[in-house]
Simulated assay, not measured.
Amino acid sequence: MQAIIYAVLAVLAFVTFYPFWNSLVISFNTGSDTALGGVTFWARDFTLENYKIVFKEDDIFHAYIITILRTVFGTALSMFFTALFAYGLSKKGIVFKKFYMILCIVTMYFSGGLIPYFILIYDMHLYNTFTFLLINGMINVYNMIIFRTFFAELPDGLEESARIDGCSNFGVFFKIVIPISGPVLATLSLFTAVGLWNDWFTPAVFISDQSLIPLQTLLVQIINAGATASLMTNLNTYAQSMVQNTVTVKALQMATMMIATLPILMIYPFLQKYFVKGALVGSLKE
């Protein structure tokens, strides 16, 4: 039975990992050779030309910077305000505490719809701005509930001793609560960062300025062949003559996809030790 379980897990792992590996192999293979077929596990005609072209394109480099800035600052803002909100709701004696929680939970299942939200963002002069990319979804109710559960389980003695020493509410939050919230902060920060990094739909709807388009939205355009022609025509004459027989649309798509995917994947190993402890916060009670 154990052998069957391992066999099934091995097959599932292969089915999950192979598409990514094949895309990576194609990105390092010449496009003309890939078009012949048969490129599966190894690059048959290795080249770095696909990546050279991608990094030479100013639009892709600029979109990469936008994605990095949005992920870093968006995650920081989301963690700060969500944790602060959750800390307030975790305190006993808050007036209308249950009412606030009901309002928050309702927003997890119901929304006003895309069109009313678009009108609201437009009327607030946030349409087509980088500010919108940062504050959109700044308070995540699901993360707030996890934070709130974690904060509610902290010993009361920690805060009481800090207040005896003269700490205010903000002092307790920043000096006591946040430093001991490493596992839950690391876990939720990673989930939030991955969500922001991979989000292409929101900028596609609320951002029309090409200089503010994140990499994932640009990648969707490239995959849909909407931006590939522009990308190829923007290359200089030397680059075109050098790679005209080796680079294809598919090769550029795979190279761009790897550039957009690998950075966020590299973060996982460094935060893996926090996953189990952070994800199970509040699941066990004495």
Rank of each mutant, 00 (worst) to 15 (best):
R44E: 15
T228A: 14
L69S: 01
V276T: 10
P203W: 01
R70T: 00
L84E: 01
V220G: 05
I135E: 02
T107W: 02
L12P: 11
A35E: 11
W200K: 08
M1E: 11
Y51F: 05
Q210H: 04
K285Y: 05
E49M: 09
F150P: 03
A83R: 03
A229C: 08
L280K: 12
F132R: 01
I267A: 00
Y268T: 06
F28D: 01
I176T: 08
A239W: 13
L271H: 02
L280A: 14
A260R: 10
M257G: 14
V243D: 00
K250P: 05
T202D: 02
G226Y: 06
G226Q: 14
N234C: 00
P269W: 09
A251E: 01
F110E: 06
K92S: 12
K277Y: 04
S90Q: 08
S23A: 14
V106W: 01
I164L: 10
D58V: 13
S211L: 07
Y142F: 15
G112P: 05
V72P: 13
E49G: 06
W197K: 10
D165G: 00
T192C: 07
L120F: 03
S241I: 07
I259R: 09
L185E: 01
T149V: 07
N143D: 15
V8S: 08
I105N: 04
F80P: 05
R163K: 09
L77R: 01
V141M: 06
F99L: 11
S78M: 11
A255H: 02
W21R: 04
N169H: 11
N234M: 03
N143M: 11
D58Y: 08
P263M: 06
M257L: 14
M257T: 14
A3F: 14
F150Q: 04
F132W: 12
M242E: 13
G278D: 09
A13S: 12
A152R: 12
F46T: 14
T237Y: 12
Q210S: 09
T149M: 11
Y18M: 08
A7R: 11
N128K: 02
